Amino acid sequence: MHFASFADFLAMGGYAFYVWLSFAITLASLVGIVMTTRLKRRQLLGELRRKEAREARRQAAQSMENTL
């Protein structure tokens, strides 16, 4: 499709509202997916660090118990 001017491009042949709305919804969805993925990753890594620290404390306590 060829447009005579930038204004015609923005108007999208009279369907600008639907076209730009679909672009906005798609962009918002993609941004939302990226943000939730990063948040979930951060939460999972924090949980993993806490579990590893807990296991290390448990093993240290168990080795102390064995020395008594």
Rank of each mutant, 00 (worst) to 15 (best):
L10M: 01
R38T: 10
R57T: 11
A56R: 15
V34D: 06
N66D: 13
G46N: 14
S22Y: 01
T36N: 03
L68M: 10
R50W: 14
G32F: 04
G13R: 01
R50S: 15
A53Y: 09
N66M: 12
A28F: 04
L27R: 01
L44R: 15
V34S: 04
S5E: 01
R58S: 12
L27D: 00
T36F: 07
H2S: 05
I33T: 06
T26H: 05
K51H: 15
A7R: 00
A56T: 14
W20R: 01
H2C: 03
L44S: 13
A28Y: 02
W20T: 05
F23A: 03
T37N: 04
T37P: 03
R41S: 12
L44W: 12
F17S: 03
Q59M: 14
L44Y: 12
A7P: 00
T26M: 09
K51I: 15
I25L: 09
F23E: 03
A60F: 09
N66Q: 13
Q62G: 10
R58D: 12
E55Q: 13
S22N: 05
M64K: 14
L21E: 05
A56N: 14
A11N: 04
V31N: 00
D8R: 06
D8W: 00
Q59W: 09
K40Y: 09
E52D: 12
R57F: 10
W20D: 02
Q43L: 09
S63K: 15
E65G: 09
E55V: 11
F6T: 00
V19K: 02
G46M: 14
L27P: 00
A24F: 06
G46C: 10
L44E: 15
A24Q: 05
A4M: 01
R54N: 11
L39V: 10
S29P: 02
T37G: 03
L21T: 06
L48Y: 10
A11L: 02
M64C: 11
A61S: 14
K40W: 10
E65D: 13
R54Q: 13
Y15D: 06
H2A: 02
L48P: 06
I25C: 02
E52F: 12
M64T: 13
G13Q: 02
V31R: 06
H2M: 04
V31S: 05
A16S: 08
A11E: 02
